[in-house]
Write a protein that binds this DNA or RNA. Structure first.
Lengths: 160, 160
DNA sequence: TAAATCGTTGGCGTTACACAAACCAGTTAC
DNA sequence: GTAACTGGTTTGTGTAACGCCAACGATTTA
């Protein structure tokens, strides 16, 4: 006998939509970010560093799920523009403690302000509430993947 | 006088998180999709074609916000595997009407099923309800850019 | 002293585009 | 019916943003 049609319906996967939406956003963002001397990829790091200030590069790579080497290049860009600082950890002098500078915080704020227009365009179908929900879900999904950092720590300012 | 602090708070932008999450998803998806002869990029097209069957390539490029030439390459891949069909439009024989074949639909379903594990991992911090919400928001954002397709049509099975 | 760790650099390979130019088949305008 | 336009196609060039690997210096741990 045939199985129930409703059970045959494949689950809708978000991956493809996520990809597409991200590409659109990045495409528009590039031109907006360019006068600020930033690239889309830099924003991820800056955003994370605003919340998890004083992170190790290793920890940063882990939460971003990126290769260490990639993170190094990213931070090199940001440090060259004095948007972040690398201090050596007193406890373990192999480690670099990465911190957002005031300049970096200001630049990030400026970038986010400038990106409002881009988001308005790409997310034009979403109202304010829906955009807020989307942001929360994305933040939750992004932060939750680091095992040490439970969901409870997301909304709070805990350093994880 | 200084402006109110709360007003100075920059708006949190979803772009960076979107980017990061999409990259993670794509990274894991590649290996899962490979035995199916698909690449992440193909899923977007297949997904759109399932809902907007019989679309013109031009329309497809428009909803995907991609270059025509890029779409051609994408469809070439899919057609080579008989996952889609290109028919000439009777009204305007310049146009190609793109349609998902049964094989394509089955392949897509299989892919989505296989991607469940990936989504489970990347979106592990989200429960079922939250994932559904995320999917709806993404779909809304993706479809909303095409003006003909209003928000009311999202939840329904309307072809837009 | 030896092994492991953190960051760093460099190189090689890949995906996935954008953009432009040129082309054919078919359509529309004059 | 010639000219202009349009939809799709091909090819080619360029770019962003990675991943992965290997090797290295500085430092810490066994």
């Amino acid at each position: 006998m045939a199985s129930l049609p409703v059970l045959n319906q494949p689950p809708r996967r978000s991956g493809a939509l996520l990809d597409n939406l991200a590409r659109r956003m990045r495409l528009h963002a590039e031109s907006v970010l360019e006068p600020l001397g930033l690239r889309p990829r830099h924003l991820v790091a800056l955003t994370v560093l605003r919340d998890r200030d004083g992170s190790t590069q290793q920890a940063l790579a882990s939460t971003l799920m990126m290769d260490r080497a990639t993170v190094v290049g990213l931070l090199n860009d940001l440090e060259a523009d004095a948007l972040i600082e690398r201090r050596r950890s007193p406890e373990d002098r192999r480690r670099h403690i990465v911190q957002l500078t005031d300049r970096g915080a200001r630049r990030l704020a400026k970038a986010e302000f400038a990106l409002a227009a881009v988001e308005d365009e790409v997310l034009s179908a979403l109202d304010t509430g829906q955009r807020a929900t989307l942001y929360e879900l994305l933040l939750l999904a992004a932060s939750g993947t680091a095992q040490e950092c439970g969901p409870a720590a997301i909304a709070s300012d805990s350093p994880c």
